[in-house]
Design a protein around this nucleic acid. Structure first.
Lengths: 356, 356
DNA sequence: TTGAAAGCGCTAACAC
DNA sequence: GTGTTAGCGCTTTCAA
């Protein structure tokens, strides 16, 4: 364990360079370069010689040196605030795979939600000469946008919108989604509906709340409560206690909760069932947002608005690669979500009298 | 939406170089370099002038150009197979933050479990001249190890072991963990214990099974069954059906299951409760492995062996940075896990007669 | 098609 | 302490 099993002082194992290959193949270094450059021209003979020599030496071009010239790193910076909400690891995995398939790779930057942290992180991102930036669950400040714009680095916001016309964004139609959730609850006979909202500092949180409110208003209903759950499990749990913990006159208690995302919805269900002893969906119906894998597990079996991650990811990849290729116009892409009906909502239309 | 809001043809926004700063500050380009190089010396006066000029121009050194000379990219390649199991996103987040704090960044590579895929991915990794590689839930082949070794790139395996003495690894003590799980089950009066194992192609899966077997043997017990759950939710679910689905003579049914990780344990519990109508822990006790966040949520409230992710991550980061700094000896680090008792195990010692 | 030569943006000797 | 010089490993004119 104390001696190296390999050569005694294997310090700098001197990379194999194109020069080395050239020497062995008996051609110029530029010939080697051409063989490894997609668009370039080289005779069959040279190509063969070079490939053979490269193989023998285990040569592979240094991407970084190449980048210095071409100005392209094929690295996409991904800024993410937290991976606790299952939606993001799933998106990250898909994003990474999709980009990988196109010859790009993802450099991950974790940001605290604090603006300051994001700013620092963005600066580092630019230092790496990334070809583009994808932000997920992170807000761009005006200053940041300006800096990226100045550096000519395209930015695509994933699952978050911003009023800035310089920014591209990919989201689901959150207003429609919030609307659909509310309509479903109304249609299934609920009348005392509360909303534990997604973080109101984020467009997603706001839009879903907005759609929800609109639908209720259209039906002549007022929400029992609208509480900001901050996309946090703890905050949502506390909101649920506040909402349901107080003693109720019969019929005053909410009969349904629409929650700003699945991650919080799980917390809401946990508190409802295990702290307050309320039956879901028997006494309270719950609707979430996202349709993360866990939502379909029988322990939760959560009715929710599905965000089509795969399609959102594809759109994001197309967008960012398009911008890298030179399409400098920002685009706003909105992808339709769908209501996924599961077991956390009870149809109360035919059981108005049965209260248990 | 069709016209760019910014300057009409903002094609290549020409990076600000050290040369530009030098000109503005009235110093040489190398002076600028020194000001931005940690170890270098520059007079107060120059430093001030340079910083001012840099600020004014928005200059930041090009990390890649620097890397070309120093041979250090401050990029760590992370190879991961799947982020579905919550353990990995958590680890990824911690890993990324820890590395970020030390000035490094994580380039993510998703690998299919197939060896071939890993190999391709590794090659790309080397192309980027990463300073080190961390693999999580991925196996290294002999050839791969040789290649990394030849390139002088340190590799640390996270949460997986390998017999190869050239490789460093950080795991929890899985044998001890499996042993502890079994002992707990035995101590709480279980006698018909099954094991839905972690993937037997992985050291973690094997070691946990081994510890489990040992403990049972020591107690003079034989496992009711040992089934490979492949670390997959579906496979584990099917194993559970096979195990409990058949009609049993009274007392033949397993009274406890130890599952190779939490991710599978959730599947086992779901099938037990919602498909087979068995009460956990009333009729069957379940123990998992990892202690992912979800394990503590009341819907599962899973007794499990905690893998101290934070400490494992810290060890991994120390290890890889140490190797980058020149410590070329591989290390094997094993971190103790702890049994976390929750509600998925029932003490059957005082209720031997009560079978409901 | 191919080689020679000029650099990409930077660091690291080396003299001054 | 500072400027000068020589590259890091590669792509890309430019002639040949």
């Amino acid at each position: 364990m104390t001696d190296a099993t390999h050569s005694p002082d294997a310090k700098a194992p001197d990379r194999v360079t194109a020069q080395d290959v050239a020497r062995l193949a008996g051609v110029s270094q530029s010939a080697v370069s051409r063989v490894f450059t997609p668009g370039a021209s080289a005779s069959k003979a040279t190509t063969a010689k070079v490939r053979a020599a490269a193989e023998q030496l285990g040569y592979r071009p240094n991407v970084l040196a190449r980048s210095l010239i071409t100005g392209r790193t094929r690295i996409i910076g991904l800024v993410v605030a937290y991976l606790e909400n299952q939606f993001y690891p799933v998106a990250l995995e898909l994003l990474s795979r999709a980009l990988q398939a196109k010859g790009y790779h993802v450099l991950v930057f974790m940001a605290s939600n604090a603006t300051e942290g994001v700013s620092e992180v963005m600066a580092e991102l630019l230092d790496y000469q990334v070809d583009g930036i994808i932000t997920a669950s992170v807000a761009m400040t005006n200053d940041l946008t300006t800096r990226c714009d100045a550096a000519g680095i395209p930015v695509v916001m994933f699952n978050r919108g911003q009023a800035d016309p310089r920014l591209s964004e990919v989201t689901s139609d959150n207003i429609a989604g919030g609307h659909a959730a509310a309509c479903h609850l109304i249609a299934t006979g609920h009348r005392r509906i509360a909303h534990v909202m997604g973080w109101q500092g984020a467009s997603t949180g706001r839009d879903r709340a907005q759609g929800f409110s609109n639908a209720l208003a259209d039906a002549g209903l007022a929400p029992v409560a609208m509480i900001d759950g901050m996309f946090s499990r703890d905050t949502a749990a506390q909101a649920t206690r506040d909402l349901f913990g107080a003693p109720f006159d019969s019929g005053d208690r909410p009969d349904a909760v629409f929650v700003g995302n699945d991650h919080m919805a799980f917390a809401v269900m946990d508190v409802l069932r295990f702290e307050l002893g309320l039956d879901v969906p028997g006494e309270v119906s719950v609707v979430g947002y996202d349709d993360v894998p866990l939502a379909s597990w029988p322990a939760y079996d959560l009715t929710t608005i599905r965000q089509p991650v795969r399609r959102m990811v594809d759109a994001t990849v197309d967008l960012i690669l398009g911008q890298i290729e030179g399409d400098h116009d920002p685009h706003t892409i909105r992808i339709d979500g769908t209501l996924i009906q599961r077991g956390s909502v009870r149809d109360r239309n035919n059981h108005k009298d049965k209260d248990r």
